[in-house]
């Protein structure tokens, strides 16, 4: 197996582990809710009345978790198709939203908020390698998570920069490090090295704004 294949499999492995963990949480909630309904049904009919509301709540919980699971399955299915084509047309803002919903849990585990944003009313179409784009975004996120403390926020903003489509990765937070500490930490992280290599494969330029906690991925 060559290095590129290993890297891609490792990326898919982390994404799959993350999403299947979420699925197990959904199944655990459904299992307990169904179990509670079963417990209530096992009570004598005369004593069951006081549990009616709880029974109905459990039913609603199951429906809500099924919906959560179906949405997650759809998002993951779309992600699983990213290697289908080496080149495809994507709308950048919508792709950022999809990426953030897939990876939000990585940030949540560190008490960090992740969100996608776009310049108002601006639709940015790009033709690119979808898999490499998702990998580049993932390494960007991973690098930021390795240096930011809890309660910070990471925003992925689709934008135009010098006539090119770009993703601005902007970090904020009261406890956030100084720009110097931030960039030193990023460059020391394993994810940053992967980011540089993958960005080069994607023909994307990585531009750091050293006055602030942000950097750009310029997609050429």
């Amino acid at each position: 197996m060559n290095q590129e294949t290993e890297k891609t499999l490792a990326f898919f492995g982390r994404m799959t582990a993350n999403l299947t963990h979420e699925f197990k949480n959904i199944l655990a909630i459904i299992q307990e809710s169904a179990g509670l309904m079963e417990d209530i049904m096992a009570i004598s009919p005369l004593a069951r009345d006081k549990y009616q509301e709880r029974f109905n709540n459990s039913m609603n919980t199951i429906k809500n978790q099924l919906q959560r699971g179906m949405e997650m399955a759809s998002r993951f299915n779309r992600f699983a198709h990213t290697p289908d084509h080496n080149s495809a047309e994507l709308e950048l803002g919508e792709t950022m939203v999809h990426f953030c919903t897939l990876t939000e849990r990585f940030a949540r585990l560190k008490h960090i908020t992740l969100q996608a944003d776009s310049q108002k009313g601006q639709e940015i179409k790009i033709t690119t390698n979808p898999l490499l784009l998702y990998m580049v975004l993932f390494y960007s996120l991973d690098a930021c998570l390795s240096v930011l403390p809890a309660q910070c926020e990471i925003r992925l903003i689709s934008a135009k920069k010098d006539e090119n489509a770009a993703v601005k990765i902007a970090c904020t937070g009261k406890q956030a490090p100084s720009p110097e500490q931030f960039f030193t930490g990023l460059r020391q992280s394993n994810a940053w090295g992967e980011l540089e290599n993958t960005a080069a494969q994607l023909n994307a330029e990585l531009k750091c704004n050293t006055d602030d906690l942000c950097f750009y991925l310029i997609l050429k």
Partner: peptide
């Protein structure tokens, strides 16, 4: 929701 339901059970 998981932990609340488990507690009830």
């Amino acid at each position: 929701e998981f932990v609340t339901t488990l507690a009830e059970r």
